[in-house]
């Protein structure tokens, strides 16, 4: 094995980075891959709760870097997938406790024995972001179809180009097909045209995402969720499969009629 190190970043906060990391990791684990997630958001630890692992934390990433524990000791095994692990962020420590070269070293130690290392980047373009991209073989930029998120994504893509982290792929998250149809939300085509990078997935707005994080069970484990399906497709694409993009058109008139006839509306 030699791991692919993938960093998920965005510029703007709250667009769905942590959600994407938890779901892509879980989906890759469901496909039988060995996955290690790293929470790079020092001081604002979150991936642990989204993955439902908050009660199992003993050591964190800063403990590993400062030599207080072995790498293996800071790797928390998932409750359901025995080949999925989380290295949590430190919650109390100074975020300067980690440097880009620390991240490169840590990821190199993981490479030999892992299929995918997925790093959750903090918002912004400061130190934590620099740490998160330092070891990346590829970068996924998450955005929402909304002006400030797209603008910040463009800044991040510009920095990645300047750092020669080249060719990031785009995840458009929280797309609302009805708003797009009414021309009250940027369409995926609009966002792609504006940002000019490769698309790897479109994830619809879906309340099951929130229900999933409430339970600490990422939405990909819910077979019926549209967002779950979208994240599972992205995970397949990360494994090199050519999966067609989902049809995100709002449910058709026919569908509504069937629902009405079935007495559900």
């Amino acid at each position: 094995m030699t791991a692919q190190v993938i960093t998920v970043t965005s510029g703007k906060g709250g667009v769905g980075k942590t959600t994407a990391v938890a779901n892509l990791a879980t989906s890759l684990a469901m496909d039988g891959k060995k996955v290690v997630c790293i929470d790079g958001d020092i001081g604002l630890r979150n991936l642990d709760v989204v993955m439902g692992l908050e009660n199992r934390i003993v050591y964190d990433i800063v403990d590993v870097i400062e030599g207080r524990c072995k790498l293996k000791q800071a790797m928390i095994r998932d409750k359901h997938f025995t080949d999925m692990y989380l290295i949590p962020a430190a919650q109390t420590r100074d975020k300067n406790a980690v440097s880009p070269s620390d991240m490169v070293r840590l990821c190199n130690d993981l490479r030999a024995d892992t299929d995918f290392v997925i790093i959750d980047s903090p918002a912004g373009i400061e130190r934590g972001f620099r740490n998160a991209i330092a070891a990346a073989d590829s970068v996924l930029v998450v955005t929402n179809p909304e002006v400030s998120a797209v603008r910040d994504a463009d800044r991040v893509v510009g920095i990645l180009e300047a750092e020669e982290k080249g060719n990031p792929s785009l995840i458009i998250n929280r797309l609302n097909p009805t708003l797009v149809k009414n021309n009250d939300m940027l369409s995926a085509e609009d966002v792609l045209d504006l940002l000019g990078i490769r698309l790897i997935g479109i994830v619809p707005e879906d309340e099951n995402v929130i229900i999933g994080s409430n339970r600490g069970a990422p939405v990909v484990t819910d077979g019926k969720s549209r967002a779950g399906q979208a994240f599972r497709n992205i995970a397949k694409r990360l494994q090199g499969e050519d999966v067609p993009f989902m049809d995100l058109a709002p449910q058709s008139g026919l569908w509504n009629t069937i629902q009405r006839l079935a007495g559900r509306k």
Partner: peptide
């Protein structure tokens, strides 16, 4: 429609 303004404004920004 607002998506049109969003796109035009973003193109400039």
């Amino acid at each position: 429609r607002s998506a049109t303004s969003a796109k035009e404004r973003l193109q400039l920004v």
